[in-house]
């Protein structure tokens, strides 16, 4: 799995951080930061959930 983010599309809602703090953070402006683009298999579900919950569709999962 490879996670891709589109920081330009991010609206700072924070759903990704709430869902998977080990994979995502928000910078000082509240915009998404990717902490781990290639998570362990144990975190695949959390990564998919973060992408699904993003209100701006700023997270893409490549599998």
């Amino acid at each position: 799995m490879k996670i891709e983010i589109d920081a330009a599309a991010c609206v700072g809602a924070g759903q990704c951080v709430l869902t998977a703090e080990d994979l995502f953070d928000q910078d000082d402006d509240g915009i998404v930061l990717l902490l781990n683009a290639e998570p362990d298999e144990s975190r695949y579900a959390a990564a998919r959930r973060s992408a699904a919950l993003c209100p701006a569709r700023a997270i893409t999962i490549h599998e």
Partner: peptide
Amino acid sequence: HRRIRRSVTARFSVKAA
């Protein structure tokens, strides 16, 4: 909209909340 919204997102991040 993005420009205006981003002037306030910092204070509403998970960390800030």
